[in-house]
């Protein structure tokens, strides 16, 4: 096989490097927000299904006997997610004030929290006091559980990759200081990623609250 591996003549002026840097930082910013927008529409579809079936109540089967998904597990999932989100946000706040270790501890705790919440969410599906097709509520609950798994998986994956990256960069960028604080392009891009990820965790907290109210409170 003669798959060629020529090195392209590629060069950058300092000005171009600056441009690329700003573009990638901007991409994390825009991409993070757009990703939240996409997830909002996904979850809004679930919320629409919930309220649509609730108000049409076909065959009086929206929610017979006011069945509820296992509350103990449900409340625990919510609590764990909320604590994890708060930790991620607090961690970033500390990081910006120079406390790298606080961010790392908070972040890894959030990873753990995300995994616990994922496990609980899956376990809850095996403990339902109703059949999936027994009512509108039951169906919507299953739908939410699947979306919640997607959302928690995404959030946990994201924060984990950021933390893993910071560990790896610790070795190479030492002369610039820790990547969480340094001024190198790599460090700036890294922080843009952290910030987008933190934003997403904030979104997760808001969404979890709304659906917790919908499924367990009202």
């Amino acid at each position: 096989m003669t798959d060629t591996t020529t090195t392209p003549a590629y060069s950058e002026t300092p000005e171009e490097r600056e441009f690329e840097l700003r573009a990638s930082i901007g991409s994390y910013w825009t991409g993070g927000r757009l990703f939240i927008g996409m997830f909002t529409f996904l979850l809004a579809s679930e919320a629409f299904a919930y309220f649509y079936l609730r108000s049409s109540n076909s065959g009086q089967l929206w929610r017979p006997r006011n069945v509820t998904a296992p509350t103990g597990i449900g409340w625990s999932i919510y609590a764990v997610v909320l604590v994890s989100s708060v930790l991620v946000i607090y961690g970033q706040w500390r990081m910006r004030r120079g406390s790298v270790i606080d961010w790392e501890v908070a972040g890894w705790t959030a990873v753990l929290g995300g995994l616990v919440a994922l496990g609980l969410q899956i376990w809850q599906l095996t403990q339902l006091p109703f059949y999936p097709g027994s009512s509108g509520y039951a169906s919507c609950f299953i739908g939410w559980a699947v979306m919640n798994i997607m959302m928690l998986f995404g959030a946990t994956f994201w924060i984990e990759t950021v933390l893993a990256r910071s560990l790896r960069l610790r070795k190479v960028a030492a002369d610039d200081g820790p990547v969480q604080l340094g001024g190198s392009p790599q460090a700036q891009i890294f922080r843009a990623n952290v910030s987008a990820c933190t934003y997403f965790w904030g979104f997760v907290a808001v969404a979890s609250t709304l659906f917790w109210v919908m499924f367990y409170l009202i």
């Binding site: 649509y52 079936l53 089967l61 097709g133 027994s134 009512s135 039951a138 169906s139 919507c140």
Partner: peptide, 14 residues
């Protein structure tokens, strides 16, 4: 697959 009833009128869906 999971036999939910999102689109089944007779089971509380629509």
């Amino acid at each position: 697959t999971a036999q939910t009833a999102f689109y089944v009128n007779e089971h509380g869906g629509s």
